[in-house]
Amino acid sequence: MSPLVTAEQAVLGAVLLDPVQLSHLEWLAPGHFSRPVHRALFAALRTLRDNGHPALAEKPVPLSWVTDAVHEASLHVRGLTSAYAHTLIQSCPRPAHAPVYGRMVLEGAIHRSITEHAVRLHQAARADALRGDVEEALHHADVLTGALDDLARRWGTEPRPVAPIAPPSALPDAPRTVRAEEVAEDERFLLAVLVEQPSAVGEVVGWLRPGDFADPAHGQLYRCLGALHHRGEPVDRITLLWEAQRRGLLADGTLSGDQLTALCGGGSSGSAEWLGERVMRSSVTRTAAASARTVRALAENDALAPGQLINHALHVLRPLDDVRARWQSANGRPAPAAKAPSPDRPPPAQVHAALARSTPGPTSPPAAQISPAPSPASVRPPSRGHG
């Protein structure tokens, strides 16, 4: 059994043994549990508490607290039995350590949630790449950023991008799609147009970067064109070849003279701005997919503390923010305004509970154990009141 499942069982066992522990777990939500039966049971325990279950005022805790919780949870999930509830009780070493067990559950939920959002972003980016679109990828990037902000506040920290000490190894990319050759063709066509129409470099140089090209060799050629344009020197296939040689691209094998001649020798006419936007669009989806893979790799590293994971993930998303801003500039769209801090931050008591998760709550008296009910008549009535 995984440590996360063990922690979830310990939290539930602690609350079944001592209902007062719920007051120390206000920052924990049913959705933070990985198993449906655990989510339903934690929600049921909160419902009983909110409805004023008699067990809250009784010592020792009556058996009705357990049976009624099982009954309430069984209305929303199948497979929960009283026997499993008693297994949960046995899984809790100390009820007073419920906040610590809750911290473990929240840690697991943060890793799991970030993984799920990263997978959705990657799927959206791949789908947009096939469609030649970017909207779904950008939408899911916003959703992931919002989720990171929410999780940071639940954990009790401020979200801020922090570079990892060692760059994470991204998960391997998916196989190249049928559009990969179309993207390469767009890049070759754009470079040919820029060589044939040097003045067109000014139409794209403000927002198109060498890193936006899928083929690194194409990106280096674009860098050479940009350098010639910046210095005000003539642009043609001869000056471009000389600039490539000056930058060592011929010596290190990045390019060959024959490749450059084949690329720029035929001459082309077309709209550099339109082609640049196509290259930019593929750059957005490619960057989104790469960011999603790296965030997922971070989230699947259980050794990363939640605060580190959230801040590293925000840092990994920065290249996508840069590409997105340039994409919007290319399309004449204003960049989105920075979001104001959310006013609905958790109450100070909840923040303190999240930050001081290791602080044990007040120790319950030894007598606070589940005691048998005196008679069946005294067991069932409470469940009718909160069924």
Results as ranks from 00 to 15, higher is better:
residue 281 R to T: 13
residue 113 S to G: 14
residue 5 V to P: 01
residue 258 D to S: 10
residue 209 R to V: 09
residue 154 R to G: 05
residue 208 L to W: 12
residue 145 T to F: 10
residue 32 H to Q: 11
residue 294 T to Q: 09
residue 353 A to G: 04
residue 174 A to C: 01
residue 165 I to P: 00
residue 244 A to I: 04
residue 305 A to G: 07
residue 270 G to N: 07
residue 310 I to L: 08
residue 362 P to D: 09
residue 118 A to D: 07
residue 318 R to K: 09
residue 145 T to P: 06
residue 377 A to F: 14
residue 312 H to K: 08
residue 256 S to E: 02
residue 282 S to L: 05
residue 343 P to W: 12
residue 185 E to P: 01
residue 198 P to T: 03
residue 49 R to I: 00
residue 165 I to A: 10
residue 144 L to Q: 03
residue 251 A to C: 03
residue 75 L to P: 00
residue 379 V to E: 14
residue 159 P to C: 01
residue 108 G to D: 09
residue 75 L to N: 12
residue 10 A to S: 14
residue 171 L to G: 04
residue 32 H to L: 02
residue 371 S to H: 15
residue 38 H to D: 01
residue 136 E to V: 09
residue 96 A to P: 10
residue 87 T to A: 12
residue 30 P to R: 09
residue 285 T to K: 07
residue 76 H to V: 08
residue 285 T to I: 05
residue 178 V to W: 08
residue 69 A to G: 15
residue 46 R to C: 13
residue 13 G to W: 02
residue 140 H to R: 13
residue 5 V to W: 06
residue 48 L to D: 02
residue 241 L to C: 09
residue 192 A to G: 15
residue 107 E to C: 10
residue 331 N to M: 07
residue 268 S to Y: 08
residue 91 S to L: 05
residue 125 A to V: 06
residue 70 V to I: 11
residue 227 A to P: 09
residue 179 R to M: 13
residue 278 R to K: 15
residue 278 R to N: 15
residue 151 L to E: 04
residue 43 A to T: 01
residue 281 R to E: 13
residue 1 M to Y: 03
residue 214 A to T: 12
residue 216 P to C: 13
residue 259 Q to W: 08
residue 58 E to A: 15
residue 61 V to R: 03
residue 165 I to Y: 00
residue 374 P to T: 14
residue 101 Y to K: 14
residue 52 G to V: 01
residue 31 G to H: 03
residue 297 A to H: 06
residue 41 L to H: 04
residue 369 Q to K: 08
residue 162 V to L: 08
residue 278 R to D: 14
residue 208 L to T: 10
residue 41 L to W: 04
residue 325 A to T: 12
residue 207 W to T: 07
residue 77 V to W: 10
residue 333 R to Y: 11
residue 172 P to Y: 03
residue 44 A to S: 07
residue 52 G to I: 00
residue 49 R to A: 15
residue 149 D to Q: 04
